[in-house]
């Protein structure tokens, strides 16, 4: 169980999956700070919105979410990846961040969130 209630940004281009993640996070006692399904809105949210942690899908309608990760890293906001590609789909410099292989269980999500927060 998470020790604290996190405000989380979801970057995910599959509506059903996003909805599911949302439900999982709510069930885990967290709050959804925002949802972006495209790179452009994701970049602006990552740069401006207030949240504790971000979950990033890697492939956003054909574009990678690594620019988003770059902004987050600069801002010092923890994040994790959730992707169908697995670790091999992650750019070299971000492989130290937690990676969730889709599909994943609520338990896996919880663990990854802890890891991400712990840095």
């Amino acid at each position: 169980m998470s020790e604290r209630r996190l405000r989380i940004l979801i970057v995910e281009d599959e509506m059903l999956v996003a909805m599911n993640i949302e439900d999982m996070l709510l069930d885990l006692g967290h709050e959804v700070a925002g949802l972006a399904s495209r790179l452009e809105p994701a970049l602006s949210l990552a740069g401006e919105a207030q949240f504790d942690l971000a979950m990033l899908d890697v492939n956003l309608a054909g574009q990678t979410s690594f620019p988003v990760a770059e902004i987050l890293a600069r801002r010092g906001i923890p994040f994790l990846f959730a992707t169908g590609y697995g670790i091999k789909g992650i750019a070299e410099e971000y492989r130290s961040y937690p990676v969730l292989q889709k599909p994943f269980r609520a338990r896996d999500l919880e663990q990854a969130l802890s890891e991400a927060v712990a840095g």
Binding site: E14, V17, G84, Y85, K102, F104
Partner: peptide
């Protein structure tokens, strides 16, 4: 692999 995983996530 990616598509199957994504589809499974959808399922």
């Amino acid at each position: 692999n990616h598509r199957v995983k994504n589809t499974l996530a959808t399922v």
